[in-house]
Design a binder for these strands. Sequence first.
RNA 1: GUGGAUGUAGCUCAGUGGUAGAGCCCCGGAUUGUGGUUCCGGCUGUCGAGGGUUCAAAUCCCUUCAUCCACCCCA
Length: 421
Amino acid sequence: MPERSPLVRGMRDLYAEELASIRIVESVFGDTLKSYGYEHIRLPTMERTALFSRGIGESTDAVAKEMFSFDDETDSLSLRPEGTASCVRAVIDANMYRGNQPKLWYVGSMFRHERPQLGRYREFYQVGAEAFGFNGPDVDAELIRIVQDVWERLEVNEEITLEVNSLGNTASRIRHRDALVEYLEGYREDLDADSQKRLELNPLRILDSKNEHTQQIIERAPNMSDYLDDESKRHFDEFQERLVRFDIRATMNPRLVRGLDYYTHAVFEWNTERLGAQKQVGGGGRYDGLCELLGGAPCAAAGFAIGVDRVALLRNELGLSTPSYTPDVYVLALSDDEDEYARQVAAQLRTTSSYSVRVHQGGGKVKARMRAADRSGARIALIIGAQEAASNQVSLKWLRINREQVTVPVTDLPTTLLNSN
RNA sequence: GUGGAUGUAGCUCAGUGGUAGAGCCCCGGAUUGUGGUUCCGGCUGUCGAGGGUUCAAAUCCCUUCAUCCACCCCA
């Protein structure tokens, strides 16, 4: 026998309930974003590696350790580890924000070379939204309100908590960073190995450390909120006021820093306790400097990204799993002689109704045909024997409810079905 | 990337050196124009892969792949 080709690590075939769950999450996001006036954008899966190293940050784990990169003829290319950098690039390329304030959303696979676990895959799905050209925190708060709408529609809002923080503008960030490094230098030897490395590369991330000893040191570290200048403070105060007005419950977490470098001002994360170690279901914030950093004109911007797989898993965890696709109607002949007539009935029904109609194929005895109808999941079986075929009729049988079978002329089928719900 | 657990039929799993099993599923019959219940019968396997030890390996050893858990990271 020829050798089988095994699935690549961290990749999945998605089908049945699992896919149905994912599609529900994606479509609710899509519908909700559309209702807020966001426009759909489809972005490429591959970009130049430089876009991510510049945009996301050379020292972030996502870029430094987790990208699928390879050399093409002239450039290093990478599978996208997230969507924001591509979206910003697209906006710059098309000059979308010249005299305009684009609001965009996207959905698609992202790739990170991590050790897989439940809720963590090498190819995973994100929905994201980005708004360009808005300075005020009203957009930031609206982004959160959009996501909150989605949580409610997906019935997961009780299981998801929101944390917020402000990183301030660039000037504030630098002042805080300097103070933080100075403080942490005093404890350099006491920090865990990872944190020691980050002291040079990305000191803010040390605030995020789960190491207990490091956490003790962080307890007394300089707080970002003490370094915010007036502009940053005003921005964040207004942001929080909006959240209250938008009926959003959020917890202030002064140590929330986000893993990607481009954030400024308001940042936020959605977490759940229901998925083990994979707590985070989404995150976002403002990134006013990114457009300029990627070679575009300066442009205020804010956005979020949601882990679709994790939200779908959460729904399953809560018993909200979505039934996979099933046909509405199963048309079966009782013997090969009526198969052609059955096919015609099915074809006709597809054009006169919006039902999904499956017709029996593969022959078999009556018992096998009926069993196939049952197993298809269809609500209704249309049974065609010699009598029906001879008189242009079909027998309609409800497979899921207790109701008497009826025999009707084919021409009456659409109305009979309509009245049968 | 680090540490650990697991991998046997389509599914859930038992089997710890001596002929590969159970339940569910599936197929057939009872019931040749009616599925889902019941009864009877039947099929189903590279024991994740490769190598080694042994008269003999699903079982012991090595390597490798995958999944899961924690770390890490993030969505």
